[in-house]
Design a binder for these strands. Structure first.
Lengths: 334, 334
DNA sequence: CTGAAAGCGCTTACAG
DNA sequence: CTGAAAGCGCTTACAG
C-alpha cells in the first residue's frame, strides 16, 4: 500500500492562508501571533492531520530531540530486577508525552563501548538518563560536562556533587529497616547488602551499621551481594555460615530477599520466628511473598528523572537533587 | 564547558580537497569515486573526527534512521522474563552496529495508545520490531502494511502469513518436551501453558497434546497461565488440585517452571521422583535450578530479527520466516 | 569520476 | 503581528 506524501508545514500554511513562518510560530507556541491566525493554523493542522517532520525540525533547531537511556548493566540484571521495570516505566511515560524519543543504550558496567561514547558525545542526543551507576564509571560520571544528564541514584565519586540526580535517602531508610528489627527484639542482625561500588549498596549498609551502633550492637555480619535473586541466596547462605545465631537480617533489595527467603525455607528456618527478614524496594513480588520491606517510589523516581531532564532541556533552572520519601511496609517476614 | 562546533561535511570536503558531493559519495560507499579521492576523504574524516549529522542525513534521504522496538506487554512482564532480556540484547547488539537508533515503545497488550499509533504511522520510524504479540493486537498485526515490520514469534490471525517473523517450531518443541517425559515412563502428564491468545501459548500446548495423542494418552490436564513466575505457581497449584495423580508436567516457560517448582517443593513433592518437570527457554535461572528444559536461542532470535529488518530497510529480498532450532537440555528435574 | 546546484522540511533573525 | 529569506547539514539527479 503506497502511502500518500505526508503534509508539510507549507501545506498547513497554504490551507490556513498564512505564511510558513506564522504557521511555524503557532506550532511552536510563540506568543506573537494573532488569534485569527492561530485558529486558522490549528484548523488546518487538524484537517490535514499534520505531524511535524522531526528531522527537519532537528536540523533547523540544531537539536536531536532524542534522549539516551543509558543502562550500565548487563541485560540479565537490568531485566531481572522489578526496580528497573518501574523506573523505566516512569521515564517512558513522561518522555512519551514530550517530543523526545528514548534511545536505548546498553553498556557494560564501568566500561561503555567506544560506540556508546561516540554516540553520546557525537551529537546524537540532546540529553541522557543514566539509571544505574558503578563507581568505576568515570566516563558516565563526567558525561554531565558534555550534555544534560540526570542520574537515577546519586553517582559515586568526585562528580557526585556536580550531578543532577534523584534518589531516596538510603542511609536513613537502611536505618529504619534495621530499627524495625531491633524494635521487634532482634539482637543479632545481619545484612546482605548491594555491591559496594554502588551508592545504594554503600548507603543502605551505612544505615544498618549506624542503627546497630546506636544501640551498641555489633555490625560485623555483612555480606555484599549483587542485587540479583541468586546473589541474595548466596549472600544469605554465607551469612548463615558465618553467623548461625542470627535472628534478623536486612537484605538490600526485594529480589535478593526473595533469594534469601528460599534459602531460609529450604533449611527449615522459620520466618520470622527464627529469623526476621526486611527487604528493600517494595516491588510486586515482595507483596506476594509477604515480605516486610522499605518502599521506595520507583516509578515516581523514573517520572521525576525524566521531568528533570526535560526541564534542563528547556533551559529551566532545575533543582540538582531530588530525594523522594521511603516508607516501611510491615508484612509477615518481620 | 563549551564544545566546539562539530565538523561538517563541508569541512571534510575542504580538508580533502574535493567537493561536498564527492565526500558524501565516499561516506555513502558509492562506487563512482577515484581511489585518490576516497583516500583523501577518509583521511580528512579521521583527522577531523567527523560524524555525519543524523538529522541532515535523514532529511535529505527522507528516512528517519530510527527503528521502533514495540513491546505490547506491561513492563512487569517484559522486565520479569529472562527471555525478553536475551531477545532484546540480540536486537540491541545488531542495531548498535548500524546507523539506526532503537526507539522504545511500550504499549498495553492489544491496545496501543493513540500516541503509539501516531508515532508509528506518523513517519517517525523507518521500521518496527514487535517482540511479543497477542491475538487482539489488530493494529500491530496490520502494521506491516504501512512500514517494514519484523515480529518476534509468528503473529496470530489473518496477517500471520503476510508477516515477517522469526520463531522456533513451538509445536515440535512442545512435542519433544512431552516425549521426554513419556520416555522417562511418565504416564499422567499435565501442562501449564502460556496464554492461549499468544502463538507460543497455543503452539507449545498443541505439541504436548499431539505427543500424548500419539501414544493414546489423555491430554485433559492443561492449565493456561501468563508466562510469569506467579502464574506458573498458580497454574501448578490448580493442576495439582485437578489431577493429584500427575507424575509429569510440561511448563511452557522456565519462569513459570520456577514458580511450579516452588509449589512442588513447598508441598514436599519430590522432583523428579514424584513429578518430573520440563520447562521451556533455557534461561539462566533454569540452569541454576537444574531444570530440564527446551533451549531456544533467544539471543540469536533477537539478532536474526534485527538482521531481517535491516535487510528490509536496505531494500533487499528477505526471507519472510526464519525458524531457528531448539534443543532439549536434560538436567535434574526430568 | 566529479562538481554546481537544487532540494529535503523546518526555524528564526531581520525588517517592517 | 507577519512575511521573505537565509540557513540548518546532508544527498542526489543532472551535466559534463
Amino acid at each position: 500500500v503506497e502511502r500518500t506524501a505526508a503534509p508539510t508545514l507549507e501545506d498547513v500554511a497554504v490551507a490556513a492562508g498564512v505564511s510558513r513562518a506564522t504557521a511555524s510560530r503557532v506550532i511552536n507556541g510563540s506568543r506573537r501571533v494573532s488569534p485569527d491566525a492561530e485558529a486558522a493554523v490549528h484548523a488546518a493542522i487538524d484537517t490535514l492531520r499534520y505531524v511535524p517532520n522531526r528531522a527537519a525540525r532537528s536540523l533547523a533547531k540544531r537539536t536531536t530531540m532524542a534522549i539516551a537511556l543509558v543502562v550500565p548493566e548487563n541485560t540479565e540484571r537490568f531485566f531481572g530486577d522489578p526496580y528497573f521495570a518501574q523506573v523505566v516505566q516512569g521515564i517512558a511515560d513522561v518522555i512519551a508525552e514530550s517530543d523526545y524519543v528514548l534511545s536505548l543504550q546498553f553498556s557494560a558496567p564501568s566500561a561503555p563501548s567506544a560506540k556508546t561514547v561516540r554516540y553520546l558525545l557525537g551529537g546524537n542526543v540532546d540529553g541522557a538518563i543514566v539509571v544505574s551507576h558503578h563507581s568505576g564509571d568515570h566516563f558516565l560520571a563526567g558525561l554531565g560536562d558534555a550534555l544534560p544528564v540526570v542520574f537515577g541514584g546519586r553517582p559515586l565519586g568526585e562528580h557526585g556533587d556536580a550531578s543532577y540526580y534523584v534518589d531516596v535517602d538510603n542511609v536513613a531508610a537502611g536505618g529504619v529497616a534495621t530499627q524495625h528489627l531491633l524494635d521487634a527484639g532482634r539482637t543479632r542482625i545481619g545484612m546482605v547488602s548491594g555491591p559496594l561500588d554502588m551508592p545504594a549498596g554503600v548507603d543502605r549498609a551505612a544505615g544498618w551499621r549506624a542503627a546497630l551502633a546506636a544501640v551498641g550492637a555489633a555490625s560485623d555480619a555483612l555480606v555484599p551481594a549483587d542485587f540479583t535473586l541468586t546473589g541474595g541466596a548466596r549472600g544469605m547462605t554465607e551469612l548463615l555460615e558465618r553467623r548461625p545465631d542470627l535472628d534478623g537480617v536486612f537484605v538490600a533489595s526485594d529480589l535478593m530477599a526473595l533469594g534469601a527467603l528460599s534459602v531460609l525455607r529450604s533449611r527449615g528456618i522459620r520466618v520470622p520466628e527464627d529469623i526476621a527478614v526486611v527487604g528493600f524496594d517494595d516491588s510486586p513480588p515482595a507483596l506476594e511473598a509477604g515480605l516486610t520491606t522499605v518502599r521506595q517510589p520507583s516509578r515516581e523516581m523514573g517520572e521525576t528523572i525524566a521531568g528533570m531532564l526535560l526541564g534542563l532541556l528547556r533551559g529551566e533552572a532545575v533543582q540538582k537533587v531530588r530525594v523522594l520519601d521511603t516508607e516501611l511496609v510491615v508484612r509477615d517476614s518481620a
